[in-house]
Amino acid sequence: METLIFYTTAFFILAAAGYVVTTMNIFRAAIGLTGVLAGIAGLYLLMNAQFLSAVQITVYVGGIMVLIVFAILLMPEASMHLRRENPKWFRFIGGVSAALVFAVLAYSITAFIGAQDAAGTSLEPAAASIREIGLALLSPGGNGFVLPFEFVSVVLIAALIGATTIAKRTPNPETKEEQE
């Protein structure tokens, strides 16, 4: 059953991702991306990481995706239709490169897993509970993550302010000239 769910979800995610990177309509790409993110949340669930799954749904699907869709809707004429595509040779090289990277990665993963199995160091499956995550997140010391946690909060604040500043409609002399 677990296997079936994994393969189904994986196939769904890959199809959605493929759609995201190939479709000519950016809005549809955004819908595809939502599918990818949701699928990944499903995989988290499959791996007993319920908290992460929830975060993935709320932050990604509920936050970032909404942001992206907003952005798309804000500049419709530039983003609705990807009229121009990169040349074929470009896409070809990109595809070959990506395939190459995948081949190498797959080879490494297989070799790594094989080596691990031979050494017999595989551990029993385990997953951290929400309680454990919460404690680790806020505890100082060797296993604590309070320092990165605080840093992330600072980064988020900075990003918030930065994004507001950048996106603010400033009286731009150049733009005015162009518009005139």
Binding site: I26, A30, G94, V101, F102
Partner: peptide, 24 residues
């Protein structure tokens, strides 16, 4: 999971390289 992630990663890579639209 690892191979799946690698595949996903390469799809993303392909997308980065081929997309001409910034949001893409």
């Amino acid at each position: 999971y690892l191979i799946f992630a690698a595949l996903l990663f390469c799809i993303g890579l392909y997308g980065i390289v081929t997309r001409r639209n910034l949001i893409g």
